[in-house]
């Protein structure tokens, strides 16, 4: 948001646009690097793979953008995704005798995922906005709860969707429309709606106001509790949606599903230029951040130029660099 700049001289204005473009430039640089290192990088197959892979974290990160913009944080999304996936698989397996294999079963599974996500988000939101516990603590707690509930549901192993049901459901991840797979389409739709909501609706404006200064929001008759709760519920539902896309991929969930997704989602949001302490959020930026994170992985796998032991370090450096470049503007003042 250019509106947040402190002083209005034209020189600064141009820099600000650069700041908005920063993550995009980083993304372009990564794409060029990838294309340079491997000729298959820009192949239809690889591009589809990377985008579809980004979709889970991406859908979640769009929700996370709202939570962080409103001054919150949610550490539980990775565990929540595992839990939602587990519940969804159990529900679908249990419903096979009733509904048989077919569209009703898949729709029922989707409904279960959305409702479970909503309920999980509602619980987080309730504890944070109504009971007034710090978001960090609430979601740290629920992170552990959802994770171990998943392990418990799976009896320490893996929950697998019935083979026939999975074969029927599988196209939701692997097929698509006009050669674009469903996860990519859903991710794009969520991103567009997210951007519209953030920039053009009262909800988005209130989220930013709440994150910028809760007191001002309260004194401006903003329903602070409801907005805050809304961000967590929205995130919960998006986790449900991401799970709907995730389950058909491998047809299973275990205690190790979605590990560290929360950190990837948060990192994507921050790389994208949303302020960690809230007040200003950019959904487009988040999408860019998600793509940057996926591309780093992809390029490291495709190029094998460094020891795989160092993959994590390279990711870390790029994440920090992306944010440093963005903030460079402020410290230059």
């Amino acid at each position: 948001m250019t509106e947040t700049t402190a002083t209005p001289n034209p020189v600064r204005e141009r820099k600000v646009n650069l700041h908005v473009l920063g993550p995009v430039l980083a993304l372009v640089a990564l794409i060029l690097l990838g294309a340079f290192l491997n000729s298959n990088f820009l192949s239809y197959g690889n591009v589809t793979n990377v985008l579809a892979r980004s979709a889970f974290i991406g859908i979640i990160a769009v929700g996370m953008t709202f939570v962080i913009t409103a001054g919150g944080i949610d550490l539980s999304v990775g565990s929540m995704a595992a839990f939602v996936a587990g519940v969804m698989i159990l529900a679908m397996n249990a419903l096979i005798p009733v509904l048989g294999i077919g569209v009703p079963l898949v729709l029922a599974g989707m409904a279960v995922a959305l409702v479970t996500g909503l309920a999980a988000g509602l619980l987080n939101g309730f504890l944070i906005s109504k009971v007034g516990i710090e978001a960090f603590i609430v979601t740290l707690g629920s992170m552990g709860i959802y994770r171990s509930l998943t392990t418990w549901l799976a009896d320490g192993g893996t929950l697998s969707l019935d083979y026939a049901a999975r074969s029927f459901y599988r196209p939701v991840y692997y097929d698509g429309l006009l050669g674009i797979s469903w996860p990519i389409l859903v991710f794009a739709l969520v991103a567009i709606l997210g951007e519209l909501t953030m920039r053009h609706t009262p909800f988005g404006r209130y989220c930013a106001a709440l994150g910028a200064n809760e007191q001002v929001a309260r004194y401006s008759a903003v329903k602070v509790d409801r907005i805050r709760m809304g961000t967590y519920v929205l995130l919960g539902m998006l986790v449900g949606l991401a799970t709907i896309m995730y389950v058909p991929r491998l047809g299973s969930a275990s205690g190790s599903t979605g590990v560290l997704w929360e950190l990837e989602a948060i990192a994507a949001v921050i790389i994208g230029g949303t302020v960690l302490k809230g007040g200003s959020g950019r959904v487009w930026g988040t999408v860019t951040g998600v793509l940057i994170l996926s591309l780093i992985d992809n390029i490291l796998n495709l190029a094998s130029i460094v020891s795989p032991y160092l993959n994590g370090a390279i990711q870390g450096v790029i994440v920090i660099l992306a944010v440093v470049l963005q903030r460079g503007r402020k410290s230059a003042d």
Partner: peptide, 10 residues
């Protein structure tokens, strides 16, 4: 400054 206006916004 604390309750009336969002100082960082336009």
């Amino acid at each position: 400054k604390e309750k009336g206006l969002l100082l960082g916004k336009g």
